[in-house]
Nucleic acid binder design. Structure first.
Lengths: 201, 201, 201, 201
DNA sequence: CAATAATCGAGACGGTACGTCACGTCTTCTT
DNA sequence: AAGAAGACGTGACGTACCGTCTCGATTATTG
């Protein structure tokens, strides 16, 4: 994260040729493209480099292994992704967030996400990155508004925010990852309303 | 499909030396062992063969690729797994099934299952086998008792059995695959009771 | 060599199914065919067996390795080959033999012979068989008539029969094996007459 | 053929890491060693690479098959071999060359040569290389001095230089490749003098 | 005529080497 | 110092044959 350095007036730069931003972007881009077309296993760094028009060593200089490269690619695409933000009662906030879910997972990003989750089953650091850069930022908001609702007694006792979020999102991930059942807005609504009913005090 | 042969009194065996059952078992066994210790990517057929004391060609003769081999290993271990069966009202049947979930996923089989689901994200046929041999047989029972409950009007209208099953199991799979949160009996109970409340008419 | 047994009145045969002459011939035949089309290295016993419509074990039962098989095939084809025989002065005998050489080495047998000589460079037993079944029988005659000529003083002193035969045949083998120069009757005559001149006392 | 590059002042090198001369030499050396100890058939590229301390892929990168590798090894060893050169009348030149023959074929190189000739019976390109790099350079001289002698009428009419060379060397190759008779200086002399007599006008 | 025994075709077995591919590292010249 | 290019040693890939084995079926001799 070279953000700090950029903020300072006098940039104390390392000697030698600076890193090529063009190369970095090309690598990330070709990684994403191959990730969408081939899956994690078939993704090989030789192809990434070739497609990016970059030397293999350049890839290895900046990303020590395939997992890190995939994580970086994932993060870069996630950062472009708008974070949905909503106000109002927790029911509305969560419902809005859930409705936003469907188009995201149907987009090319959806393919990257399932690939990342799949790879994450064998590579803990990938899973960790997924949680950190994708799951947590999205859980954060929901968790806050749920905490408030619990304090106000508007939710059945004994439930903690994370379990509640699991109840809302679990069925969605289930369809995404295991069942090949379609992820429709109607389905999302059905899940939402049933869980809401179960949460009532 | 050797149906013709089965119809005849004398089973006409194929000519040539018959397949070695010993070799088959050894391969499946070593696949499972390596699957538990290494994950899908690191599983290589050369090691499987070596550990099984079997020629590499013997592996390839019967399983055309790694995916098929893993599927076969998965099925073999699943077939040994008792299917839980319960009677009584649907609430009890599902609750019993869910409580049975925890020890299974904590056992070595659990490791195999997450690996299979992970690999299945890139290899559709693995996912299909997982659904066919693991998910479906377990859903079947629950679906039946839910269908009955719906007909009797004991469940909130508009819900179909599969969505209900998603509601019960989604949160569990979420913890298993993504969150590293512990899968405790208490958590299972919490999920169960909340969903049950949501299902009431 | 079951000749002795065949000569006796009562054939004391071993119990069990006797060797299939049909299979033997098919193997030898397919060996020869493959030998002509592929050379020694590319000849593999699996193809021999397949082409002969014979089990692999049947081949191995009777010929312990490729070399023996090739030798057997070579001998079988050689035995069908008429041995040329001539009388009269040694000059005529050898000249006739040499003239007979050209068509033999141009026939399919020629291809087998160069292959056998080639293989014999690495496999001594093949070379030995070649010498025993091909070279020696042909040298024998020539050697006898040369021995007589030497005794009669019709050949320059100091020369032994085998060296003389080398002088006649060496150039022919040289063209056959190394130079790709054509093996014509004219060339054979030239060699013959020059050596004859060199042999005069 | 980098003729263009050679014409320019600055030799424009190909991009990328240059070929390792060390690896090349090690491969050739280990090929020769194995060739002397095992023959062509038993020579396998895996062993060549292992003995040379080189990756198998490095061997295949530069020599597409065993034949090319053997040819390269043969050429390299031949290039180190001094070319014998003599002056004076053709009789002396050829006699000297022939006397030089015996120690060469008794040396380790002799083993390589018979192996190459043997392999060359099945692999035309090996034979071609043998002719080009071994036979022809040695024939060249002899051919020139014979051509002169023929023009001067010192050789019996009707003989061309190559046939004459065949007469001298044919018997030697015959003993080398087929007969296991010893290749002695006395034998060489006998052949030489007899052929010389046959050549007289 | 049954029992015994060696052969047959077929093809699976544990192996070894093949030639290819991608790995992650390196060595060159260029920027 | 970083870039592209590409060779390096390594090791797994999936294939092809090796020579051995285990089947059921066949064909002879022996009791």
């Amino acid at each position: 994260m070279p953000k700090l350095a950029e903020n300072t007036e006098v940039i104390s730069r390392k000697p030698g040729r600076p890193r090529s931003e063009k190369a970095r972007k090309a690598v990330i881009q070709s990684t994403l493209e191959l990730l969408m077309s081939s899956g994690f296993n078939d993704l090989n760094i030789e192809s990434v480099a070739a497609r990016a028009g970059v030397g293999k060593a350049t890839v290895y200089r900046w990303w020590p292994n395939k997992a890190e490269l995939v994580i970086a690619a994932f993060i870069s695409v996630v950062e472009e992704q708008l974070r949905f933000s909503s106000s109002g009662p927790f029911e509305k906030a969560i419902h809005d967030q859930m409705k936003n879910w469907v188009p995201v997972y149907r987009s090319p990003l959806g393919q990257v996400i399932t690939t990342v989750i799949g790879a994450g089953q064998s590579e803990p650091e990938i899973m960790e990155a997924f949680r950190k850069y994708w799951v947590e930022p999205r859980r954060h908001e929901a968790r806050e508004s749920l905490r408030l609702a619990i304090k106000e007694g508007r939710i059945h006792s004994g439930l903690d925010p994370d379990t509640i979020i699991d109840l809302f999102y679990g069925p969605l991930y289930l369809r995404l990852l295991i069942t090949n059942a379609p992820l429709t807005p109607a389905y999302v609504d059905l899940v939402f309303h049933t869980v809401i009913r179960g949460l009532r005090p």
